[in-house]
Design a protein around this nucleic acid. Sequence first.
DNA 1: GTAACCTACAACCAAATGGTTGTAAATCAG
DNA 2: CTGATTTACAACCATTTGGTTGTAGGTTAC
Lengths: 113, 113
Amino acid sequence: MDALFHALADTTRRDIVRRCLEGEASVSRLADGYPISFAAVQKHVAVLERSGLVNKERRGREQLVRTDLDAVTRARNALEELEAQWRGRVGRMSGLLAQVPEPTQNKIRKGTQ
Amino acid sequence: MDALFHALADTTRRDIVRRCLEGEASVSRLADGYPISFAAVQKHVAVLERSGLVNKERRGREQLVRTDLDAVTRARNALEELEAQWRGRVGRMSGLLAQVPEPTQNKIRKGTQ
DNA sequence: GTAACCTACAACCAAATGGTTGTAAATCAG
DNA sequence: CTGATTTACAACCATTTGGTTGTAGGTTAC
């Protein structure tokens, strides 16, 4: 999860992900698109690969990169869960209000015995 | 966007976000929950604040931290867009074709006089 | 076989991270 | 006023990042 979000926390890497969902590309082909060295792009791809966001597949002398959409979905689900935990609060609040076992009572009675 | 995903790329920070959607807490109250120093938690909160994920509000001598759900939504939308660009390729295409008009007008008229 | 191309990986560097401790200022309680 | 709490921030340290260049190995083309 850490690796997933970290991988997404870079414009170049998000762009690589985007470029690799519409048709796979070799690493050097990808590198053409950025003003950084080939090795730098290679490292970005390695980060993406470790996070599971992309796969590499050897094809002759080049290595084709392709985005794994399931990983993107996994990240999105994590965020949706965060949101749900909040929105769910409101609904659960009313439930709680009916339920709260008077935590105040304890305090009041604390010194009385 | 970079800042947003980077902020989410840490378990402790995600946990702080979670804890601060269910009722705001002061920084030191938050710090009690983790095995790291107060200053470390303070830094995590600072990262979250810079990313827009949380706000701080002074309340007497303490500072209450509260998650801004819109920021979470913003991140989720970015991921949904990534997915949409893939799954929705065909559908989006036709949508665009029906939609594109206006900005082009300038271009067209620019040379016509 | 030789040359060109694509990839992998190591070594190196500057800057950022995540953590620590320590110090100082503001606020609240007695 | 004094003391405890809460925060802010600086200085420092180890590790990681994102970038570079250089070298070496595999593949394809000629």
